[in-house]
């Protein structure tokens, strides 16, 4: 299933946050979205997943979601959004309970996603007992459990420290390599975008417009930090971002 954002404009009151944004998210690809603070990236993601309605334009699902998909558009949140009163297992089972699955089918799904995210041994742990990186892995496991057509990730790693981020990045790449998923990945971190994105959309400062969409011409598995071609892309992104970020900063200071 593909996802398409068609001429999306969104306003909060008088403030235009997104201006005529059109994006294609073909199945099996990860689209990274970068842009200066406050340019509407999170808003765009909420619009894509139907948590908010655009002032103008529309979001279209093209084609049918894959077989066995319980929740086509599935989020991974920056702050994990785990229920603190449920165990790791309970948090995953939460999103399966409304679908009338048989007990053993649900258990099989839970075991599968917990194994894939290396959390099987922590089934019975409560969120407060987990580190930030593990909490985010639980959130990823929960998202995988519903077999989404498109995963919507809003800065999923930005609440974590640099080492954990690296590890989770590798985990995400491994997950994608084993079973390609469609994703929209919002981030501040250019290195992350270059590592994970098949294409990278650069948004301008508010009101957010699509400045450019850059293709990263390497297979996800072949990318290494420090590869010259990738550094070149990252530099190009940074040059685009710098002016926007500077201008955005200036505007914020003026308010």
């Amino acid at each position: 299933m593909d996802l398409r954002a068609q001429n999306i404009t969104h306003c909060y009151g008088d403030m235009v946050v997104l201006d005529d944004v059109s994006l294609e998210i073909p199945a099996g690809e990860i689209l990274c979205i970068i842009g200066p603070s406050g340019c509407g990236k999170s808003t765009l993601l909420r619009l894509l997943g139907g948590l908010e309605q655009p002032s103008d334009g529309q979001v279209l699902q093209l084609g049918a979601p894959p077989h066995g998909c319980l929740n086509p558009l599935t989020y991974v949140f920056q702050d994990f959004a785990l229920l603190p009163w449920r165990t790791v297992e309970g948090n995953v089972s939460l999103v399966l309970e409304d679908h009338g699955l048989e007990r053993h089918a649900a258990d099989a799904i839970i075991d599968d996603v917990l194994t894939r995210t290396k959390l099987y041994d922590f089934k019975a742990a409560l969120p407060r007992q987990l580190s930030g990186g593990m909490k985010q892995r639980v959130a990823i496991a929960r998202a995988l459990a519903v077999n989404p057509a498109v995963m919507l990730l809003d800065e999923p790693l930005s609440a974590l420290d640099a080492q954990t981020r690296e590890l989770l990045m590798d985990d995400l790449i491994a997950l994608w390599t084993r079973q390609p998923f469609t994703g929209v990945y919002v981030t501040h971190n250019l290195a992350e975008a270059v590592r994970l994105g098949h294409r990278i959309a650069v948004l301008s400062r508010r009101p957010g417009r699509v400045r450019d969409v850059i293709k990263v011409p390497f297979a996800l598995g072949d990318r290494r930090a420090g590869l010259p071609e990738m550094d070149a892309i990252q530099t190009r992104l940074w040059e685009m971002m710098r002016d926007e970020a500077l201008a955005a900063d200036q505007e914020l200071a003026d308010v």
């Binding site: 929740n71 989020y75 959004a81 999103v95 409304d98």
Partner: peptide, 11 residues
């Protein structure tokens, strides 16, 4: 955010 999460999973 927990409620939004629930909605986003179609609960």
């Amino acid at each position: 955010t927990l409620i939004r999460m629930g909605q986003s999973f179609g609960l």
